[in-house]
Write a protein that binds this DNA or RNA. Structure first.
Length: 314
DNA sequence: ACGGGGATAGTGGCTAAGCA
DNA sequence: TGCTTAGCCACTATCCCCGT
């Protein structure tokens, strides 16, 4: 079960997260905090409930004062944590979160591109979530798949044990109409940055503005052609003294996003929901049974040096 | 006119991805 | 491998709005 296309992509995505020096710096501290929240003999609910504490985990590496380096790395660190968490909760499903844009299959990169006249401003989508269709090619062990391209040639699913990007590009192109895609905008602070997700969501929702030569998509891949597309906002938030209520501008700016707004703490009704709610809200069709059940079956693999060791939970 | 609270705009060194 | 550059965010002075 853990050798499917989505699982191989997940592994590649999570391994990439741990490549950055920033992540290697913060991880020992975060892991302590994560273990503290998970408890000794954790179950699937403990993993999902980490979402209520992502903000605390993030802040456990907060540096006194604020040098510019901390500011810069903060954004990367938060994106990494959210991407790690989503993949963690989605083990066993067809839902995969990817932080590195170059790892996103080409058709999806093309579809999310926004063209401002001739200028392709590649959306700085922090995290791209792909929900693969409920089809054989995404449910079976990759060794049992036989993927034939348009010329009748077999495309290998893996290259030296890792997923073959060409196979992924081919499949996402072939099954494009049945894909679901989620874009997640991550920001550590909420106040001023709320404008950004609001504006991108407007453009995606409008499908571009033809009169002004603003269009979405390249190579005939359009985000409005996939089965479902959501745009969401996930914040820490790092603004310690901020007092958010349902009338705050920052709140109003993101409450209407197609994918909703979330934060790394307990849900505050009318303000923001815990990031753990993002799965039911946006990605539920990607679960094989349901999120908890998929996760429960994978639990043993977290607790030994097994298939899921790459999450570095040990 | 005044005061207070909330929103806004600007700052600026570091990080990491991309490229040659 | 080294260089270039887009992108990162916490804090503060200032602006704006509204009630008194």
């Amino acid at each position: 079960m853990l050798n499917t296309i989505p699982e191989l992509l997940r592994k590649k995505s999570v391994q990439a997260i741990f490549q950055t020096p920033t992540m290697q710096n913060v991880w020992p501290t975060w892991l302590n905090e994560i273990h503290h929240h998970l408890g000794a003999n954790f179950a699937e609910n403990d993993i999902i409930n980490l979402g209520d504490n992502l903000g605390n985990i993030f802040r456990s590496t907060a540096i006194a004062g604020r040098d510019q380096g901390a500011l810069s790395s903060g954004g990367t660190a938060w994106e990494s944590l959210v991407c790690w968490y989503i993949n963690l909760c989605c083990v066993g499903s067809r839902i995969v979160a990817i932080k590195t844009m170059s790892m996103v299959p080409k058709p999806i990169q093309d579809a999310t591109t926004i063209n401002y006249a001739n200028f392709a401003c590649n959306t700085e989508s922090d995290i791209t979530v792909i929900i693969f269709p409920n089809a054989n090619d995404y449910n079976q062990d990759v060794n049992n798949l036989n993927i034939i391209d348009d010329h009748g040639n077999t495309i290998p699913t893996t290259v030296t044990g890792r997923i073959n990007p060409h196979a992924l590009n081919f499949l996402t192109e072939r099954d494009f109409l049945n894909l679901e895609i989620g874009v997640i905008q991550c920001k550590t602070n909420w106040n001023d940055n709320a404008q950004i997700p609001m504006l991108w969501d407007m453009i995606y929702s409008a499908g571009g503005f033809s009169g002004r030569n603003i269009t979405i998509g390249r190579n005939n891949f359009n985000i409005q052609h996939v089965r479902n597309f959501t745009y969401s906002f996930v914040t820490v938030p790092s603004n310690a003294r901020a007092n958010y209520n349902q009338n705050s501008v920052a709140v109003k700016r993101v409450t209407n996003l197609s994918g909703g707004n979330f934060w790394g703490q307990h849900t505050n009704v009318g303000v923001a929901r815990s990031v753990k709610e993002i799965f039911n809200n946006n990605y539920s069709s990607g679960s094989r049974t349901n999120l908890r059940n998929d996760l429960r079956q994978a639990l043993p693999d977290f607790k030994k040096n097994g298939d899921l060791e790459y999450f570095k939970l040990l």
